[in-house]
Write a protein that binds this DNA or RNA. Structure first.
Length: 576
RNA sequence: GCUGGCGUAGCUCAGCCGGUAGAGCAGCUGAUUUGUAAUCAGCAGGCCGGAGGUUCAAAUCCUCUCGCCAGCUCCA
């Protein structure tokens, strides 16, 4: 059965139910979604509330039970205008989107008529499992200047089992919320004094820095050299780069000595200034620079969301200056690096897209065409399958996007590599070719994780806070059973720290059980339990976070095993 | 930014058709010295996000403001 048709049909049934409750309800659009459907409605002089959802659901069930057929017919536009004369949004649609159509498609069930292209299921009985979900605000045509509407969401699946599974995933996602994990594991916080700005706590910053180390290592392997550029640069620079006219509303500005400055929302202009420091030969290219660039963007208050959407973040931002014929090779190397990096984090389901020219953009048609073809060629020659995202490129050039699926099957866009012919021209970038003439290099913008902050949020949810040994801010905690072992524990801990491990001790006057519980809640990978026995035998009893016990090993055996796990960036805690 | 909801102890939350605040956990103190996810008891802790207003009286009602949450829109 076509799940899309089913969900879309469910939207019609919901509309019929709403019309039963509110005969004068005005319906806008009601499409299917990834997990169900919604319908945008306006209740003249009133509104729907959460209490209405069960009522709607009840009526929908009745309609489904009736197994009423969906009738399809094509009617002339004039007739449709008459038919929908009481539905102002349908009339608007007929007079805009469908204004050139001779006849339009109409579906009817139970006397409820809707302007709709279809397709639909045969009858209302063909709806699998559904549930009303929530009510949210929306606007006609998604524009806040237009009429406010209410978007009524439902979820719908072919079977009850799938619906149940989906609800379980939602619950699981709620449990894994990185904002909660961040608080519980004492990683980061947010404060009213700076909405959208992350405060990294000691443990969170340890994680952050370990991530940075790993990314740096990857970029080094790609032959990139790290730079750092200022966060405040003159406003004029941003006019030149084109960022000002495209994003001035989303930028922070400041002033000093009567000169206007912008807090950088992007790293490329800074990198470009370094490139312009000297004249490069074609032999120097590709020149690969990278920067852990801290950028500020004045995001709308309503979009802020934990680490996912912040107003200041760190990009693993790379800029490659190369000749056009080098693009393919650079993309090839980058793609390999991206897949490798994601696999280390346990993201094995990666999809690739090419995003093409958006409405608001700079550069000539020819440049866009060339750049887009270059991206396609690079992917095709490397056997990478990809989809197309029409009009979703950057304003200066097309891009390849890398999406991963996490363990809850949610999609996240992470990495990107973008071809840019525009910026080099705007900044008069040059290199001397083998023909002794000066040419403009191509600029490739690339990022593997995109935003470190956002990636950490995604990853925390992916692993539910249980960080692998190589990333755990505290790798092991030494837990004593009685005070008598504290001195020995202190020495042991110091020894382990000396070996390069991140180890803490728990000397709190609590029982061992409580200390273990606390360590478990902190998701610390290794708990070293010290009692009289271990002190006597000079060996260790290790409890893994998974609950498994490794008893009677020497300190050396422990260190070697953990170091091997860390070196391999393994997601298991103990060697096989 | 827009629509709707929310803001009470360090944390999670109760109290809210008005009569100046409560629980659990965490913290502190004392007792307990304990073998793989919470020992017991006591103590302390809050200008109820901020500013105005209504009222004899405001955590509770109203206005504004800041922040958070769910969406919309946006994302170089």
């Amino acid at each position: 059965m076509d799940i899309k048709a089913m969900r879309h049909s469910a939207a019609h049934i919901m509309a019929e139910a709403i019309k039963e409750l509110h005969p004068n309800a005005q319906f806008a659009f009601g499409p299917e979604t990834q997990n169900g459907f919604y319908y945008d409605v306006e209740i003249p002089g009133g509104s729907l509330t959460n209490e209405d959802l069960p009522k709607i659901e009840k009526i929908m069930k009745k309609i489904i039970k009736s197994k009423t057929p969906f009738h399809h017919r094509d009617v002339p536009r004039d007739e449709a205008l008459e038919l929908f004369k009481d539905q102002k949004y349908k009339v608007k649609t007929l007079n805009s989107l469908l204004k050139d159509e001779q006849s339009v498609s109409v579906y009817t069930q139970n006397g409820f008529v809707d302007l709709c292209r279809g397709p639909h299921v045969e009858n209302t009985g063909n709806i699998g499992a559904f549930a009303m979900d929530k009510i949210a605000g929306a606007y006609w045509l998604g524009n806040a200047e237009n009429e406010p509407l209410q978007r009524i969401y439902g979820i719908c699946f072919a079977t009850k089992e799938e619906l149940k599974e989906y609800k379980k995933l939602l619950e699981e996602a709620k449990k894994r919320d990185h904002r909660v994990t961040g608080k519980k594991l004492d990683l980061f916080s947010f404060h009213d004094e700076g909405a959208g700005f992350v405060f990294w706590h000691p443990r969170g910053l340890t994680l952050f820095n370990l991530m940075v180390d790993f990314i740096r290592e990857g970029y080094r392997k790609l032959g990139a050299q790290e730079i750092r550029t200022p966060e405040i640069l003159s406003e004029e620079l941003w006019h030149r780069s084109g960022h000002y006219e495209n994003f001035k509303d989303d930028m922070y500005f400041t002033e000093a000595d009567e000169r206007r400055y912008a807090i950088k929302p992007m790293n490329c202009p800074g990198s470009i200034l370094i490139y312009k420091e000297k004249l490069y030969s074609y032999r120097d290219l590709p020149l690969r620079l990278m920067e852990m660039g801290h950028v500020h963007r004045f995001e709308l208050s309503g979009v802020l969301h934990g680490l996912f959407r912040v107003r200041a973040f760190t990009q693993d931002d790379g800029h490659i200056y190369c000749m056009p014929e080098q693009i393919e090779e650079e993309i090839k190397r980058f793609v390999e690096s991206v897949f490798y990096t994601y696999s280390i984090f346990g993201f094995d389901d990666v999809s690739v897209f090419i995003a093409t020219r958006p409405d608001q953009s700079i550069g000539s048609d020819e440049e866009w065409e060339n750049a887009t073809v270059a991206l396609k060629n690079a992917l095709e020659k490397n056997g990478v399958e990809y989809g197309i995202k029409e009009g979703e490129g950057a304003f200066y050039g097309p891009k390849i996007e890398f999406n991963v699926k996490d363990c809850l099957k949610r999609n996240w866009q992470l990495g990107t590599i973008q071809v840019d012919f525009s910026m080099p021209r705007r900044f008069d970038l040059e290199y001397v070719g083998s023909d002794s003439a000066r040419h403009a290099p191509v600029l490739l913008h690339r990022a593997i994780l995109g935003s470190l902050e956002r990636f950490i949020g995604i990853y925390l949810e992916h692993v539910a806070g249980a960080l692998p040994a190589w990333l755990a801010p505290v790798q092991a905690v030494v837990i004593t059973i009685a005070e008598g072992q504290n001195e020995y524990a202190r020495k042991l801990s110091e020894k382990l720290v000396g070996k390069g491990l991140r180890v803490e001790t728990d000397f709190s006057p609590e029982r061992m059980n409580k200390k273990i519980r606390n360590a478990q809640l902190q998701k610390i990978p290794y708990m070293i339990i010290l009692g009289e026995k271990e002190v006597m035998d000079k060996n260790l009893s290790v409890r893994l976070r998974t609950g498994e016990n490794i008893n009677g090993i020497t300190v050396e055996e422990f260190v070697d095993s953990v170091k091997e796990i860390i070196k391999n960036r393994s997601d298991t805690l103990w060697p096989e």
